[in-house]
């Protein structure tokens, strides 16, 4: 390589490395703000802000969803399979909301384990398949268990 080109390449690499390290530090310092939600375990450990709106993320515990008879009021449990948080909410749920679904709910803690939600968002995974395949998979799983 021509010495002149090598010199320019070195300059560029040094600049890139410097900027990368700087950005890395900034992102590391801001990591808790960049995370969109707290897990139930983090909340139990007291990491979530008190008396402040924040988001809680986890799975809707199987069989925990209870609808009120007349209103849109709904209560369910959000779990990370270690700890549970009771969530209550009044409003429209996204189409994907169901048992076992990943959710991200925004709201405030009202008591130790009680969370009042103002917004419920559904989080889905990266898997896509036709319903038939899904049924076949479920059957195969049942027959082996």
């Amino acid at each position: 390589m021509h010495p002149k080109r090598r010199q320019r390449l070195t300059y560029l690499l040094v600049i890139m490395l410097g900027v990368s390290i700087a950005i890395g530090f900034v992102l590391y310092a801001l990591r808790q703000n960049i995370n969109v939600y707290y897990t139930p375990s983090q909340i139990i450990q007291g990491q979530a802000p008190k008396n402040h709106t924040f988001r809680l993320g986890g799975l809707v515990k199987q069989g925990s969803v209870m609808h009120a008879k007349t209103e849109l009021e709904v209560a369910f449990i959000v779990t990370d399979l270690v700890h549970n948080i009771n969530v209550s909410y009044n409003g429209i749920l996204p189409d994907l909301f169901r048992d076992g679904q990943g959710v991200v709910v925004q709201g405030q803690l009202t008591a130790q384990n009680e969370f009042r939600a103002s917004q419920v968002l559904a989080k889905h995974d990266e898997k896509y398949m036709p319903p038939i395949v899904k049924d076949a998979l479920a059957q195969a799983k049942n027959s082996t268990v």
Binding site: I23, L27, R31, N35, V36, Y37, V104, E126, Y128, V133
Partner: peptide, 30 residues
């Protein structure tokens, strides 16, 4: 940062469906 954001932080966006190293998480017909 865009590519790894869904693994480095908690996000609402899901992970990658097609990646170079793993079997795609999507049925062949799709």
């Amino acid at each position: 940062i865009i590519h790894y954001s869904v693994y480095w932080w908690n996000t609402l966006h899901q992970g990658a469906t097609i990646s170079r190293f793993a079997k795609p998480a999507i049925a062949p017909s799709m």
